[in-house]
Simulated scan of single mutants.
Amino acid sequence: MSKYLVNKFLYTVDRDHELTERYREDPAGTVAWWEAEEAGRILNCVAAEKTTWLAFTDDERQALSAHDHVALFRMGAHPFLTLTLWIAMFERDFDEPLAMQRDYAARLAHLEPPYPDIGT
């Protein structure tokens, strides 16, 4: 896994309201577009330097497209990045205060230490 690339995706999508909404509504399309158009630009790479680390793996692409924060955590994506993005995308779908955050945590509750390395 290119944890850096996945984390960069999560970070940049979370920092742009229009992109956050686009990812909420069309996750697979947003992932494909970002990977093809933005990954190299954001990381300041020229086309001649394009390597496999500028592409998501199939598992990364699937997890990002499915909004699967548990799979992303298992692969080493930083949980704070998924949490802040999920708050922006999904908190509005819950009626109770902090219900989204409790749901997020409950889906991770079955995991036990040692947790995946989240360092990049």
Rank of each mutant, 00 (worst) to 15 (best):
E25Q: 14
T12C: 06
K50R: 15
K8V: 09
W86F: 14
T84Q: 14
N44D: 12
I118L: 11
T51I: 06
D68E: 10
L19I: 03
T51G: 15
A28Q: 13
R92G: 08
L54G: 08
T120G: 12
A66G: 07
E91C: 03
K8A: 11
V46Q: 12
I42W: 06
T12Q: 11
R92E: 08
M1I: 01
Y23L: 04
D59P: 02
M100G: 13
L83N: 04
M100D: 06
Q101R: 11
T57L: 07
V70C: 07
V31N: 08
F94H: 14
L72N: 02
A55M: 11
R24Q: 05
L43G: 02
D16C: 03
F80S: 13
V46I: 12
E38R: 10
D26S: 12
D117M: 05
L83A: 13
K8R: 13
L10W: 01
A47G: 07
L111Q: 06
E91D: 15
P97M: 04
I42A: 08
Y23H: 07
W34M: 02
R102K: 15
L108M: 12
Y115Q: 08
T84S: 11
L108H: 01
M89L: 10
W33M: 10
E35I: 09
A32F: 01
M75K: 05
S2N: 15
F94T: 07
L81D: 06
F94V: 06
E37S: 13
L83I: 07
Y23C: 04
A39G: 04
T20W: 00
A105M: 14
